[in-house]
């Protein structure tokens, strides 16, 4: 999976390309943790090109969201594909994450 990092004001935008599974979620976790330790706390994860997510990925996102909130920030998501959306629904993540239909919308929510 490819992670493209962009900074838009105070918000860090991470675009994920590919599969977020047990193996690749470790990479994402590392990325988020390092950003957090650098003081970043506002995150938009753009999942427009994310084709797949499993529970490992969900866990990483959940931990990232908790940590951001704990630091006084937020993590929001944008552009969930259908299948990914369904997984989020089943996992009940749609209740705990703010999900936007465009990157701009997500960014302006901060």
């Amino acid at each position: 999976m490819q992670i493209t990092e962009n900074k838009r004001g105070a918000v860090t935008v991470l675009e994920l390309d590919g599969r977020l599974d047990t193996v690749t979620s470790a990479d994402l976790n590392k990325k988020i943790m390092s950003l957090l330790s650098n003081g970043e706390k506002y995150f938009v994860l753009d999942l427009a090109r994310l084709t797949y997510v499993s529970s490992a990925g969900l866990r990483v996102l959940l931990m990232g969201a908790k940590k951001s909130a704990g630091a006084g920030g937020r993590m929001v998501l944008a552009n969930l594909r259908d299948m990914v959306q369904e997984v989020f629904d089943i996992a009940g993540f749609t209740n705990i994450f703010s999900i936007y239909t465009s990157q701009d919308e997500a960014i302006s929510s901060f």
Partner: peptide, 24 residues
């Protein structure tokens, strides 16, 4: 089954995998 009603802070990190399988 994980408790899906919990808030972000309350949610446990584990238990999701089987839950997904059950539903899919």
């Amino acid at each position: 089954e994980p408790d899906l009603e919990q808030t972000l802070e309350e949610r446990a990190v584990g238990g999701l995998g089987i839950h997904l399988v059950r539903n899919l």
